[in-house]
Design a protein around this nucleic acid. Structure first.
Lengths: 228, 228
DNA sequence: GTCATCATGTAAGCCGTTACATGATTGC
DNA sequence: GCAATCATGTAACGGCTTACATGATGAC
């Protein structure tokens, strides 16, 4: 799961560990503050598995550069200090890039159905956040599976509320609020599913089936207006 | 955490493991289907720690009885089969009752602030579900802490959304939906906090401070209309 | 008598945490 | 120079999961 998140962020640009943590927290809101004790070992595992590699920081390396901190003097100092120490620009900072093997692993992780098991909110959120790397049909399946799961939970909750279950006001308030949230989640998913079905129809008509590895990447690059 | 949930359910009535699992899933909606591999070891730990004890099933034991399955012939068979085998009525079913020590541990667990750490949704939900066993002031603190936590997350999310963070439509939809949900959670908490402040004011005027061990228990029993 | 369900348990392992330890960079 | 923050890592452990194993009860 964490590895999926890391690979997903690295698909987009090169990053170092500390920055990955920040993105996960601030940008996606998933893994509210993942701990370093998870993050760094995960990066090591990925590196050993050949999914990522340490790279020279910034420069003319073709990929998107590591974001600057905003301090001019600091960046100059970093430039001065940079040596031929793989992945260690600005001494101590280890920048990772995803490999081809890593992209394969990412696609596999992203596409794999969590075998009827957990299917929890975090796992879904993570997959949705990276949905642009999923083929349209898989995207639709992801949304529909989540919808079905929530609808099921709703049914069970209503069944339990029906027979007996004398709860005090606190527990009742909690259950009711949870139910409302779930209903809103389902409406939201319905909207996403609708939008997605439209897209799938268009794609199918155009003749492009479930084949390619990346989707809407062009669009993504355009949105950023970055040199390439 | 699981132990808190178990003790909380047992505060109310005697139960066996399988039934505890069902309650957690159907009634509270927390721990969607806790696994037996967690549940039974947890019960064993609690028993070893003297927090719970196996008891004779149903009969005239003073506590609330284990719920019947609804099958008359089955219940008669269970009665016939019952022997002096601690906690094993209906052969194979092990019914637990909370002890005085268990009540102390429960109060301690319930009241303890999760040291600035996780403070996650599940932990809060669990504590709220058992809020009636908390002194009014502690109840208020629980709600306010949760509110503060969510408000903080909201601020951080907005800060991140402000500078940069070009997300694609999927990630953006996820972030926006999450933000809306958080805002709704906060409104809900505000309502609970308002209601609670009223109660605290009344209690304080009446002269009852933060002392007793159980609250609104009378009310709870009345609501159920059960023989005692 | 047989099948679904109820019921309890053990073993291995995953995925994450906290606590600890270290050092570079940068603002003041 | 000193503190705050950035940055990387290790060790121990916590809590829950899956998979496996077993057996009783109850409906038909």
């Amino acid at each position: 799961m964490l590895e999926l998140a890391i690979l997903g962020l690295l698909e987009d640009q090169e990053l170092h560990g500390y920055e990955i943590r920040k993105r996960l927290r601030d940008e996606l809101g998933l893994f509210a503050n993942i701990s370093f004790g998870s993050l760094y070992p995960a990066l090591s595992r990925l590196e050993r598995a050949g999914a990522v590699e340490a790279v020279e920081e910034s420069g003319t390396d073709g990929g998107r550069a590591v974001p600057m901190t905003g301090s001019l003097s600091g960046e100059r100092a970093a430039f001065r200090a940079r040596r031929a120490n793989p992945g260690r620009g600005r001494r101590g900072r280890k920048v990772y890039r995803i490999t081809e093997e890593g992209r394969r692993q990412f696609a596999a992780l992203l596409g794999s159905e969590p075998g009827a098991g957990i299917e929890d909110a975090r796992s879904f959120g993570l997959r949705l956040a990276f949905a642009r790397y999923l083929p349209p049909q898989a995207r639709l399946r992801l949304l529909e599976r989540r919808r079905a799961h929530l609808a099921q939970r709703l049914i069970e909750a209503q069944a339990a509320a029906g027979h007996g279950s004398r709860l005090d006001s606190y527990a009742r308030s909690l259950v009711e609020h949870t139910t409302e949230s779930t209903e809103r989640d389902i409406s939201w998913l319905d909207r996403l599913i609708d939008a997605e079905r439209g897209r799938v129809a268009v794609t199918t008509i155009a003749g492009a089936g479930e084949r390619a590895e990346e989707y809407h990447e062009m669009k993504g690059r355009q949105m950023e207006g970055e040199a390439r």
